[in-house]
């Protein structure tokens, strides 16, 4: 019954994820630094400046955690779980000098990002010279990585709230070229499937769904009259390279992405390499 499958495909294709907007208000932000109060002052100031535009509740408070308040990853988790801030701001390789190498986030961050339910804003290390000049500027060019989970309203809502008034939010979906080519290679060895036709159909289908969802995000944000400009980028490419290219092209000063992966204990497949590679700008990790 091929026709049943044909019509089911038509109807399945007609079911589209629609974006639902939700207002996000921040009541408390925790800034974690491994430095003493005096040494951390400049970093804290930069963070406050960066977050100047986020919507804050009436009882908004800052909580600054200094180096002497924690030692292990468990100490940080206990702190975050106890105080439950709406946002945690910190940097990689806490209590370590490994920040000079582009290989890890450090033990504290590896655990915090997986365990904490609070979003984490990962900032360039205050001692490093690799921070982009615009890293602590008002976020008027924000990019959201939407290719991890389809129809992730939470990701888009957060990205919208972090984008400064009249700033631009880029909703980017990049399908992995290597994975795509691997499947096409398998298809090319199956005589009953036309390879060119399969390549064309799979590529257009892969890109259509995220494009439709992003379209619905743009439409709804526009209807709500929020002062955020939105642009869609949907393509196939080599993940990290493509993101780096787009970040440079649009002079992005904040990247928003998901870190949780329901299927595994480690960080989401694309989130980890991006977090390791992209040290120059703030990364909002949900």
């Amino acid at each position: 019954m091929t026709q049943i499958d044909q019509f089911e495909s038509v109807f399945r294709s007609a079911v589209k994820d629609i974006f639902h907007y939700e207002e996000i208000i921040f009541k408390s932000v925790m800034i974690i630094t491994d430095k003493a109060e005096k040494e951390a002052a400049s970093f804290v100031e930069n963070v406050k400046k960066l977050l100047n535009t986020i919507p804050k509740g009436d009882t908004f408070s800052w909580r600054i955690v200094h180096g002497h308040e924690f030692d292990s990853a468990k100490d940080i988790i206990d702190l975050v779980e106890k105080e439950k801030p709406d946002l945690v701001c910190t940097y990689r390789n806490l209590h370590s000098r490994a920040w000079s190498f582009k290989f890890s986030l450090g033990a504290h961050l590896d655990v915090l990002l997986q365990v904490s339910s609070s979003p984490v804003l990962l900032l360039p290390h205050p001692d490093a010279s690799y921070a982009a000049k615009h890293a602590f500027d008002t976020p008027n060019s924000v990019m959201a990585v939407t290719d991890q989970i389809s129809a992730d309203d939470r990701l888009v809502n957060n990205a919208v709230r972090f984008t400064a008034k009249n700033g631009t939010l880029y909703l980017v979906h990049i399908e992995n070229r290597m994975v795509f080519e691997k499947f096409i290679d398998v298809i090319s060895k199956i005589s009953s499937i036309n390879t060119d036709e399969a390549r064309l159909n799979i590529e257009s289908r892969l890109l259509k769904e995220p494009a439709d969802y992003i379209k619905s995000c743009i439409r709804i944000i526009k209807e709500l009259g929020l002062l955020v400009m939105m642009e869609a980028v949907v393509d196939i490419g080599h993940h990290v390279g493509k993101y780096r290219e787009l970040i440079d092209k649009y002079r992005v000063n904040m990247l928003v992405m998901n870190t949780k992966d329901d299927e595994q204990l480690a960080m989401h497949r694309i989130a980890y390499p991006l977090a390791i590679e992209l040290r120059e700008i703030p990364l909002l990790m949900l």
Binding site: M1, Q3, I4, F7, E8, V10, F11, R12, V15
Partner: peptide, 14 residues
């Protein structure tokens, strides 16, 4: 047959 295929497949999806 066509009617059943259209409405039946839609019923499943919806």
């Amino acid at each position: 047959v066509t009617a059943m295929i259209i409405v039946g497949s839609l019923s499943g999806v919806s």
